[in-house]
Design a protein around this nucleic acid. Structure first.
Length: 282
DNA sequence: AAAGGGTTCAACCGCCGAGCT
DNA sequence: AAGCTCGGCGGTTGAACCCTT
């Protein structure tokens, strides 16, 4: 594993030089940029046969002209079978906001509490959506005033949104199970009808371990971009009707294919009443 | 229809700590 | 102890896509 040390000793010089030349050659041959379908296939196949880890070795053994890092990133952020694609649900957004208020930019730590989501995805969400709101309010995204704005306005409204979607989910569910209406969607789990109240303060202090959830996902290439098709209607914890965030962390997803509320973002929700929020500005 | 600006997100970069020799 | 590789992390970039004019 360890490369030969480049020590200038008579019997080592030639080895050192050839090693350097080899590295330069490797550098020249290394591919960068977007992954091709062929590369993805190679990587998937190799990981399936030999498992993850030892990425540099893996890259060479699999015949990929990529760095180990690049392979690792591609696998973890895109190819891994349990990666969940698509927009973040309101539940997930809520969890991210809460966890970020606790831990800051600890993306991997936050991602660990969102099954199927990657740190990269969460980081992108934060930068493109949340920080955008902060900019529009002329606030620092990590300022107390913006955090207060999130807690007092955005989070409760996300909860509201979750309630609404839970209700519509339950309606859809009963319709779907009706003999007179053929099921258009996968069967929704029971327990989607929840009333929820949001207690923003330290609601996640006792975060339960989130069960690992498997989703099936396949990817296809369109217009040079990869698109994953995930079919999912995730498991639901229905033990409680008082949905504090701690129980919400079991993510009561009713992700409906073809139903576009996942595409909602803050503006679309009408979450931000700038007049109300103005008081939080310094 | 075209141009230009904004947004998204996959991929890269640099740094750091762990582990090995 | 020093030097090296590797894996993991957070920050950044840039191409593709989207939206507006």
């Amino acid at each position: 594993m360890k490369a030969e040390t480049c020590v200038v000793r008579n019997n080592k010089v030639s080895t050192c030089q050839s090693k350097k030349q080899q590295q330069e050659t490797d550098q020249e041959e290394l591919r960068r940029g977007p992954w091709t379908l062929e590369e993805d296939t190679l990587l998937i196949h190799y990981v399936r046969c030999h498992g993850e880890g030892r990425w540099n070795l893996l890259a060479k053994a699999a015949g990929l002209k990529r760095t180990g890092k690049s392979c690792r990133l591609r696998w973890l952020n895109y190819l891994k079978p349990d990666i969940k694609r698509g927009n973040l649900t309101p539940q997930e957004q809520l969890l991210i906001l809460e966890l970020h208020s606790k831990w800051g930019n600890r993306w991997s730590k936050i991602a660990a509490h969102l099954p199927g989501r990657t740190d990269n995805e969460i980081k992108n969400y934060w930068r493109t959506r949340v920080q955008k709101q902060a900019r529009q309010l002329n606030m620092e995204s990590n300022s107390q005033s913006f955090i207060d704005a999130i807690r007092c306005f955005y989070m409760p409204r996300l909860v509201q949104k979750i309630e609404q979607s839970s209700t519509s989910c339950a309606t859809l569910n009963s319709e779907a199970s009706s003999p007179s209406s053929p099921s258009k969607f996968p069967e929704f789990p029971t327990g989607c009808t929840k009333n929820s109240t949001y207690c923003s303060n330290n609601a996640l202090s006792d975060m339960p371990q989130i069960p690992h959830q498997q989703t099936s996902a396949s990817s296809s290439y369109t217009r040079g971009k990869t698109v994953n098709v995930a079919e999912d209607c995730y498991n639901v914890d229905s033990s409680s009707h008082d949905v504090e965030l701690s129980s919400m962390s079991v993510l009561t997803d009713c992700h409906m294919p073809g139903h576009d509320w996942l595409g909602d973002d803050m503006e679309e929700y009408g979450m931000w009443d700038l007049d109300e929020l103005w008081q939080f500005r310094k």
